[in-house]
């Protein structure tokens, strides 16, 4: 069985079997990263374009390395959203890239749904590398890979996601994926940063971090952005850190073998205490390595074969 889809736009429409396949394919990919010669010829002659409308060193580098380890030609295009609004439309840019021979377009954009526009206009595969507050599926997949690697399973685990849920595509993608794989997901944050009706996604909402992290197997800490405070969604960074910062004391309320995750980049001393970020329980660096492995797996599954989407019968 393969991943029978052209694009990866979000976790929402991935089945448990598809998630399983991606996570299993990432395992041999991780072995490649550990080798001295970090390269396989699988995607020789394929072109992967990283189209980043938002700055992101981490995700872009991860996709770039994933493509290079698989022998694809990877090209990075970074541009600011403001110039896009004024100038060429997204679909015109995309069509240009396709004419140039892109097989996969990885897109990061500040507008939710931008990857969906691309996917409608392109026959190349589109991978959503984060769109607005909507989804960031590769982050969720690497998080789930990390959880499964360390815990041996996902089903039945208690995963607490702490922070600005309202503006977090990482949270949304993880909620879809983790819930589909049978985890018990909790979201923790100030009421002003919890999106409406999120409980319908099968999560429990906590405004108290102490209650929310109790007995958790995994604490996933989200980055808090100063911009939200400026919009008045919470009073001060200081109060946020005091009420929601993940400290060693709060970690002690979770299970002793709790895993601490953060999608990065971290605000040390705000949403996460430095001693927690650097603790034995932290898998934050492991997440980065796994990110490359998961993205290699996706590039293989979406672009590795012929083009199943054009093949009939």
């Amino acid at each position: 069985m393969g991943l029978n889809r052209k694009d990866l736009l979000g976790m929402q429409d991935l089945t448990a079997e598809e998630i399983q396949l991606i996570l299993e394919t990432a395992e041999p990919m991780k072995d490649i990263i550990r080798r001295q010669i970090k390269k396989v010829p699988t995607l020789r002659g394929k072109v992967v374009i990283n189209l980043f409308y938002e700055p992101s060193t981490r995700t872009r580098t991860s996709f770039e390395l994933a493509g290079k380890y698989m022998s694809a030609d990877t090209i990075n295009i970074s541009t600011s959203t403001s110039s896009v609004v004024k100038g060429e439309t997204l679909q015109d840019t995309a069509k240009t890239l396709e004419v140039m021979g892109a097989d996969v377009v990885v897109i990061r954009h500040s507008a939710a749904g931008a990857p969906h526009i691309l996917s409608k206009h392109l026959s190349a595969s589109v991978i959503n590398a984060g769109d607005g507050f909507h989804e960031h599926p590769t982050q969720a997949l690497l998080d789930m890979f990390t959880i499964k690697e360390k815990k041996g399973r996902i089903a039945g685990l208690k995963v607490a996601i702490v922070g600005d849920i309202l503006h977090s595509r990482v949270a949304r993608s993880n909620i879809w994926g983790l819930a589909r794989m049978g985890a018990e997901v909790r979201v923790i944050g100030p009421a002003t940063l919890v999106p409406p009706e999120i409980e319908k996604l099968g999560v429990t909402i906590y405004t108290s971090v102490e209650e929310g992290v109790r007995d958790a197997d995994v604490i996933m800490v989200l980055r808090i952005q100063l911009e939200r405070q400026q919009k008045g969604l919470f009073p001060t960074i200081r109060e946020y850190a005091r009420l929601y910062g993940i400290t060693a004391e709060r970690v002690s309320l979770a299970r002793p073998d709790v895993m601490i995750m953060h999608p990065g980049p971290m605000n040390r001393g705000v949403e996460i205490a430095p001693e927690v970020a650097d603790s034995m329980q932290s898998v934050i660096n492991e997440q980065v390595t796994n990110g490359v492995a998961v993205r290699m797996a996706l590039l293989y599954l979406l672009a590795g074969g012929g083009n199943p989407h054009e093949t009939v019968g």
Binding site: L21, D31, V40, M70, Y300, G304, G305, G306
Partner: peptide, 22 residues
């Protein structure tokens, strides 16, 4: 040894083979 990633016929087959660990 799993040789899938080194195959030269990946572009001619419809579905990607499942990769196992080497």
């Amino acid at each position: 040894l799993d040789i899938t990633l080194y195959r030269d016929d990946l572009t001619t087959i419809t579905h990607q083979p499942v990769i196992h660990k080497t």
